[in-house]
Structure formats: structure tokens, C-alpha cells
């Protein structure tokens, strides 16, 4: 019974983890940079949900939708602003890492100014009040609603990548920016758009993170970035579909450890990350499988 519970909980969390990490992976896939400010964007999304719920009495889930347009605009503009300078740097990959590290520090500081460093949480009642029965056991309604909200986001993104012209262009850039440019795709605009979408995904996931990861504080960004990085490393860097696999693996591993070895549960993302990175260094670096 405990095993069943842990498996279902792991799947519910897994879907959420996939959503949480998707923006990071999308940006990596197209731009080859790790957005170290990813966790901080998630944190901002949590505050957005908090404000929507308490100041405007809207459902926190609306943050997912509300965030899309402003994030794409801000993210895209940021990308267009810094990309040329990064491209000229001696070691663009390392410089982008340091750059986003700096941005992450700035976001954290500004969030601490704006929201104070006190932890805030959104009442679970915001998503419903009765536990949901699955296979004869009762699960917190927050878990179920969050998973249910994550699935359509994932589906929409995959439909975008698979079925629209822009999405196909995005995948072409992922595969090879040079070839994409050769067939007339505006790589710069696609990259800027993708960066914006990645930011929007991170902020949107933040509205759910406040329920799944406990309350929100300005300093939580780093641990969310590591968690998300673990998800995309396990699932395959630069592979959006792999993110779902990574999320589910991490969700199951975490919940099973929490059930049977609770002391060691917080080690799970780190150990998984290290294990994958060290045992398949080439597999991680190559992009063997790609969204079909």
C-alpha cells in the first residue's frame, strides 16, 4: 500500500517536475546555454501566483497564462540585448554561465526587496479542499490539480514544436543552427522567441511550485535550478520529450526514497544528477534522440 502510494505520488510529482524543467531544457536545446536564473524565474512565478490569489482573488493557476506574453517580450528582448556581446566573447559558453549567474543574483536581490525574505505560501484551499481518491487511496488535491495542469502545458508545447511552422523552425535550430540558417530560418529571432518561451515556462511552473515544493522565498532559486538540471540531465539535455522521462524518473525516485529511507530523500536529485553525468558523459553531451 505504501509502495502504491509512493508510485502514484511519484508520477504526479514527475509530471510537475517535467513542466518545472522544460523551460531550462528548451533554452539549452536551442541556445546551448544553461539558464542559471531558471530557478529564480520559477521563484518569481510563485510570487506572481501568490499576488494573483491574495491581491486579486484569482486562481493561482492563471499565472501560467498571464505570464506568457510579458515573459516572451522581456525574455526575447534580454536575449537580443546580450547575445551579440556573448557571441564575441572568447568562451561564450562559460561567459553565458557567469552572465546568468549574475542575473540570478540580481533577481534574487530584487525579489528580496520586493517581497521580503519571509516565506510565503498559498493556502492549499486555492486548488480545492477535498482529497482525491486514486486506486483506493486519498491524495492531496493540490498534487492532482498540479499534475492535471501540467499535462496540457506539456501537450501544447509538444504540439507547438511538432505541428507549427515556428515550432519546426525551432527544432531545426536545435538540430543545427548553421543548417537552419542555410534554409532561410531567422536563427536570431527563433532563438529570442525560444528564450522568451523558456522564461514563460519557468514562471508558469512557479505558480505550481508554490504548492509542490513548499512556500516561496527569494533564495529558493538555486535548489530549483539544480533540481531542474537533474531532470533534464536524466532525460537528455536539449531533448524536450526526454524532460518528461527525466521528470518521472526523478519523481518516482524521490517519493520512493521518501517512503522507505526518508533521511536520505534530499540526496536523490544530486545523486541522480552525478550518476548520470559521470556514467554517461558522452551520452549526456551528445543529443542522440530528438523530438521526432
Amino acid at each position: 500500500m505504501l509502495l502504491e502510494y509512493a508510485i502514484v505520488a511519484g508520477l504526479l510529482f514527475g509530471v510537475f517536475y517535467a513542466y518545472l524543467a522544460l523551460g531550462l531544457n528548451l533554452i539549452f536545446g536551442v541556445l546551448r546555454i544553461v539558464n542559471l536564473a531558471h530557478g529564480d524565474l520559477v521563484m518569481l512565478g510563485s510570487y506572481l501566483a501568490f499576488e494573483l490569489y491574495y491581491a486579486w482573488h484569482w486562481s493561482p493557476l492563471l499565472a501560467i497564462v498571464v505570464a506568457v506574453v510579458p515573459c516572451i517580450l522581456v525574455g526575447g528582448a534580454l536575449y537580443l540585448g546580450v547575445a551579440p556581446r556573448l557571441a564575441r566573447a572568447q568562451d561564450p559558453e562559460m561567459m553565458s554561465l557567469v552572465l546568468f549567474f549574475g542575473i540570478s543574483q540580481v533577481i534574487e536581490a530584487i525579489a528580496a526587496f520586493g517581497f521580503t525574505s519571509n516565506e510565503r505560501s498559498v493556502s492549499a484551499n486555492a486548488l480545492g479542499s477535498h482529497p482525491v481518491g486514486i486506486l483506493g487511496q486519498a491524495y492531496p488535491v493540490t498534487w492532482v490539480v498540479v499534475a492535471a495542469a501540467s499535462v496540457p502545458v506539456l501537450l501544447i508545447l509538444f504540439a507547438y514544436l511538432g505541428r507549427t511552422r515556428l515550432g519546426r523552425a525551432t527544432r531545426a535550430v536545435m538540430a543545427s543552427p548553421d543548417e537552419a540558417a542555410a534554409v532561410g530560418i531567422n536563427v536570431r529571432m527563433v532563438s529570442a522567441l525560444t528564450f522568451g518561451v523558456g522564461v514563460a515556462l519557468a514562471v508558469g511552473a512557479g505558480s505550481l511550485a508554490v504548492f509542490m515544493l513548499g512556500g516561496v522565498t527569494p533564495t529558493e532559486g538555486v535548489s530549483i535550478t539544480i533540481l531542474s538540471f537533474a531532470v533534464i540531465v536524466v532525460g537528455g539535455l536539449g531533448n524536450p520529450l526526454g524532460t518528461v522521462v527525466g521528470g518521472l524518473v526523478l519523481g518516482l525516485a524521490f517519493q520512493l526514497t521518501l517512503t522507505f529511507l526518508p533521511n536520505w530523500a534530499s540526496l536523490v536529485p544530486y545523486v541522480l544528477l552525478l550518476a548520470v553525468v559521470l556514467t554517461r558523459p558522452t551520452g549526456v553531451l551528445s543529443r542522440a534522440r530528438r523530438l521526432a
Binding site: 505504501l2 502510494y5 526518508p262 534530499s266
Partner: peptide, 20 residues
């Protein structure tokens, strides 16, 4: 009698273990 890391937030699963 169980210790959990201070950063623990997902008590749902632990509550099931306690209930057992």
C-alpha cells in the same frame, strides 16, 4: 521515530508512512 531534512516540504508521503 524518523528524522527528515529541514528543507522537507512534501510531507504527504511521510504522512502515509505514519498512518501505516
Amino acid at each position: 521515530y524518523q528524522a527528515v531534512p529541514s528543507a522537507t516540504a512534501s510531507y504527504g508521503t511521510l504522512i502515509q508512512s505514519i498512518k501505516a
